[in-house]
């Protein structure tokens, strides 16, 4: 990860407010994400977690108040796996629409092995299950060099062993100077300071 990341924030949200369908989801929400932070976004269903995430990464550009500054590149994994059924996992990663890097075959194979898809590299993705599609997407966590990860429900449809491998990878990322913002309804089992981002109050430790 970059050295400069330690000194300046990776993401700054300034007085974000969002109202949907006449209901105020959050108001004057301000926070900074710095290197080394592992932040879990808290809230019940419909509280506005995904809306906030989409604002943070820049997919929602209108309809909210406040500003988001993104000095660092962001790796965003959303609800949709972004995996093409007609392409193999290897092709999906090598030709990924995010255009973030050029990966060697070995790098892709290693990443797929990390997410438990060893031997599935060249199988058409339509032959894979929903959980395996999610895993193909999660393999990007092993390939990316973005300092900030924004993950929306990364544990959805992932089995127990997959979850613990993922937790280890998150831990590895934050201890190497990256930062993670994620939503999850499961409690994270990591040996690290987990900070909570609440929609009504900002970041609390």
């Amino acid at each position: 990860m970059t050295d400069t990341a330690h000194s300046s924030p990776l993401l700054v949200a300034d007085s974000l407010s969002l109202t949907r369908g006449g209901r105020e989801l959050f108001r004057d929400l301000s926070f900074e994400i710095n290197a080394g932070q592992l932040v879990q976004l808290e809230g019940s269903n419909g509280a506005g977690k995904t809306s906030l995430i989409r604002i943070l990464v820049g997919l929602s550009r209108y309809g909210f108040d406040g500003t988001v500054t993104r000095p660092a590149p962001i790796l965003y994994l959303g609800h949709l796996p972004g995996v093409k059924a007609m392409l193999s996992p290897r092709e999906n990663l090598a030709w990924h629409a995010s255009g973030e890097g050029t990966y060697s075959d070995t790098a892709i194979e290693q990443a797929l092995q990390q997410v438990g898809l060893y031997g599935y590299e060249d199988v058409p993705s339509h032959a894979l299950s929903a959980g395996q599609h999610r895993r193909v997407n999660l393999a990007r966590l092993y390939l990316s060099s973005c300092p900030l990860w924004v993950l929306d429900e990364p544990f959805a449809a992932i089995d127990k062993s997959g979850v613990s491998a993922l937790e280890a990878q998150l831990l590895q990322h934050v201890s190497c100077g990256g930062a993670v913002v994620m939503t999850s309804h499961q409690a994270l089992q990591v040996d690290y300071t987990l900070e909570k981002l609440r929609l009504d109050g900002g970041i609390v430790s």
């Binding site: 990464v57 997919l59 959303g78 949709l80 972004g82 995996v83 093409k84 629409a97 995010s98 255009g99």
Partner: peptide, 22 residues
């Protein structure tokens, strides 16, 4: 359409590449 439905389009919009060329 299919890129929109499977989320690839979101990733394309967030990519550091110029959207004009893509």
């Amino acid at each position: 359409r299919s890129d929109f439905e499977d989320g690839s389009l979101e990733q394309l919009l967030l990519s550091p590449q110029p959207l004009y060329l893509t």
